[in-house]
Design a protein around this nucleic acid. Structure first.
Lengths: 216, 216
DNA sequence: TAGATTGTTAATCGATTAACAATC
DNA sequence: TAGATTGTTAATCGATTAACAATC
């Protein structure tokens, strides 16, 4: 029953974390549907996974199941929310309020999981000074002050490739420890800073690759 | 020297394709900088990869290098563009013109690699009928006709989760063989249709996980 | 030729899956 | 208790890396 407290973050495979997110969503749905328990087998089937994989993913963090029964939906959901850090609100800073940046700002999915974009920065004089949905768009020089004042924790980089490293350096300098980067460049960050890249063009290229190959 | 023509698509690891995209970009930059040749070692160093991995990735598709020299930058670039299907233009259809959809439409990165969003669909009466940058926003019922007329090849799903499966079914029915999905749901598609999911919330959750763990 | 670097085979590593004793 | 399902160990699979003969 005891939850292992002393695992190393680095030991948890990235794919395990991603699957935990997926399980969590499923459990939220199951809870709404009034379903009380679910087995690893049933959970796995919904995502074409192996039941052993589901159990192993969970086993990194503790023993949440009951032999002969499976997992209690709302109990497991609560555990996973805690593990993923979704049992609290995160203060997110968005840098870059172009097309992508403003879309991310208005995207409802983030807010729903507790990611609150509470600061926006853009050095474009046409944007800095404006207000979006009650959030002021500020020039980057104000970042350090705002990061402290609003205890910003996660940065989103949505600026052009050329500007991305400079922006990242300022985020790091202001104490941000996690960055989600949408610019198509490899950013350098200190090793205590978590960096995740989302490269939309590469996603499309995996598709054009498949189509180009298929056409042979 | 001969390029192997008979490999199976399914045999190429996804991660290999993603790295090919990255190599290609690097080669484009190197070409602009006037660099003529590059070794697998030099290429690998730029991305913290292993030189054997670079050579192996390329070896899936042929022998592009010269022993003792390395790879000719512009020659290899041209080969990779062909392999990735980036030596041509792709007709992309965007479904959903909300915040995310309109951002993707205006995102310059796609166009630059030959992905042309040449049709937009949205059933919202406030949007259907409008024109965005010369592209008419049409109701979904026109999809079949437009798909034929414009030989649409790749679909982007940027609608709310509830609408995503319905939209996908219509894309498939209209003959689209590759779909990039931004809705946070597992879509069902026939097995000859390529599906790639981009889940922005999960990306943020990998960060909140790391922060939450680090905070223990 | 001597030096450099490829393409490829063999070794290593890590993640997925099968199998099963433990136990509700 | 009998049946079901967990948590975990061992086997399998696939991807990464090291090593090296081939060769420019």
């Amino acid at each position: 029953m005891a939850v292992r407290a002393n695992y190393k973050i680095s030991k948890i495979p990235e794919m395990t974390v991603r699957r935990l997110s997926i399980y969590t969503r499923c459990l939220q749905q199951l809870e709404e549907d009034g379903i009380k328990t679910i087995s690893s087998q049933e959970l796995a089937e919904r995502f074409n996974l192996n039941s052993a994989q589901v159990r192993k993913d969970l086993a990194y963090f503790g023993e949440f199941g009951v032999r002969g029964i499976g997992y209690y939906v709302s109990g497991l959901k609560a555990e996973l929310l805690k593990i993923l850090g979704l049992d609290r609100e995160w203060q997110v800073v968005l840098v870059g309020f172009g097309n992508l940046g403003s879309a991310l700002f208005h995207y409802k999915g983030f807010e729903r999981q507790g990611f609150r974009i509470s600061a926006i920065f853009d050095d474009d004089p046409a944007k800095a000074g404006r207000v979006a949905d009650g959030i002021a768009i500020l020039p980057l020089r104000d970042l350090g002050r705002e990061a402290k004042a609003k205890t910003l924790q996660i940065g989103i980089v949505a600026v052009p490739a050329e500007a991305a490293q400079g922006v990242t350096d300022r985020l790091v300098a202001s104490g941000i420890k996690a960055i989600l980067n949408f610019a198509p460049v490899r950013l350098k960050v200190p090793k205590d800073v978590r960096l995740k890249n989302v490269d939309l063009t590469i996603e499309l290229e995996t598709l054009s690759f498949a189509l180009a190959q298929g056409a042979r």
